[in-house]
């Protein structure tokens, strides 16, 4: 693929890996012309979490109108597109397959390249939507319901995973604790809300740092400590203060994330930290990192909240760089629910 300087590069990004059906039209990597998100949160709420089969059914009903609306709001047709980018993993296999099948058929019929995007890479590329001046190398802290990763980027498409969670993802631990506290789903925002009126020092939860120098994470011990505290209180017939529990747990999660991010910056000497993923919207995490990093003259970059949760714009942003690299997917592209991060 050769790219002329004059012609605009217009990418349609499609995301269906979990419980949001989303599509966006992005021109030249920075000009977001439309961004549609159809969220299923309300549908899944009564089940206390995302139900894979129901999520797939919802995507199947929404993908066509969501894509139509994204094109209409951007005032473009399929003939104006340079390529279609779609998430092919990681995520829920049934949900991924709706997006992959639809995107593939659209790209094939339009005679344009299909770009297969790793969802995690998409989260990190959300940062490029609003920051055009990012210079490599970059360190990314990706924190979401399914993932907790520290990744160093040497260039577009060239990255190395430095550490990841050995058990629960940070967002997953927040979800589980929120459910145990009766705060509902999704857990992260609910914990943050409850924590506002709580004392973060009321409970001492363990912060698992693992062996010295390790950039891996572990959140299950911390989560179990909350559940144990709840259980033993119940046995004694006592009730615990929910805002205090939420605030103390949130503080413990944030302490570990900040500690590991600082360690990774120290080990790599990188001067820019990108925050990505749903938990990147957490205020305490942002503020704590902001405070620590300013003392070390490290720049902190994070996406607006709308680009932190799952969305099509971030997939289009990652797709733009894949397009420039000539990295088109074959028509045999399949959904890969357990897809890992690996360099181009």
């Amino acid at each position: 693929m050769t790219v002329s300087q004059e012609k605009q590069i217009t990418i349609l990004g499609i995301e269906t890996s979990c419980d949001e059906t989303s599509a966006a039209v992005l021109v030249d990597g920075v000009n977001l012309r439309s961004h549609i998100i159809s969220s299923q949160i309300v549908t899944h709420q009564k089940y206390g979490g995302v139900v894979p089969e129901i999520a797939s059914r919802e995507h199947s009903l929404h993908i066509r109108p969501v894509v139509e609306q994204a094109l209409a709001e951007a005032s473009v047709g399929f003939k104006d597109l340079s390529a279609i980018a779609v998430t092919y993993g990681p995520g829920l296999v049934g949900s991924l397959l709706v997006g992959v099948s639809g995107a593939k058929a659209m790209a094939y019929a339009a005679g344009i390249p299909l770009l297969g995007i790793n969802h995690l890479e998409g989260h990190i590329y959300a940062n490029f939507l609003e920051h055009q001046d990012l210079e490599f190398p970059l360190l990314a802290l990706l924190v979401s319901g399914g993932h907790t990763h520290l990744i160093v980027f040497k260039d577009h498409g060239r990255y190395e995973v430095l550490g990841y969670t050995r058990d629960d993802a940070a967002g997953e631990a927040l979800d589980k604790v929120a459910r145990a506290l009766g705060l509902g789903y999704p857990g992260g925002p609910q914990i943050q809300k409850a924590a506002q009126d709580g004392n973060e020092q009321a409970f001492k939860f363990p912060r698992a740092m693992l062996e010295p120098g390790s950039l891996d994470f572990s959140f299950s011990g911390m989560k179990s400590a909350v559940l144990n505290a709840l259980n033993s209180a119940r046995m004694r017939g006592e009730t615990l203060n929910v805002p205090d529990l939420a605030a103390s747990f949130q503080q413990a999660v944030v302490d570990v994330l900040v500690h590991k991010a600082l360690l990774a910056l120290q080990q790599t000497g990188v001067k820019t930290l990108l925050l990505a993923g749903g938990v990147a919207a957490n205020r305490l995490l942002r503020e704590s990192l902001e405070y620590e990093l300013s003392r070390q003259k490290v720049r902190l970059v994070y996406p607006s909240p709308v680009f932190c949760t799952d969305n099509g714009a971030m997939i289009a942003a990652a797709g733009y760089y894949h397009f420039l690299a000539g990295d088109a997917a074959p028509w045999t592209l399949n959904a890969v629910p357990g897809l890992n991060l690996k360099s181009l």
Binding site: L97, A105, M106
Partner: peptide, 13 residues
């Protein structure tokens, strides 16, 4: 869902 998404994608374009 694969059949419908494929047919719809083609029909849409």
């Amino acid at each position: 869902r694969i059949g419908i998404a494929t047919a719809q994608g083609l029909a849409q374009v």
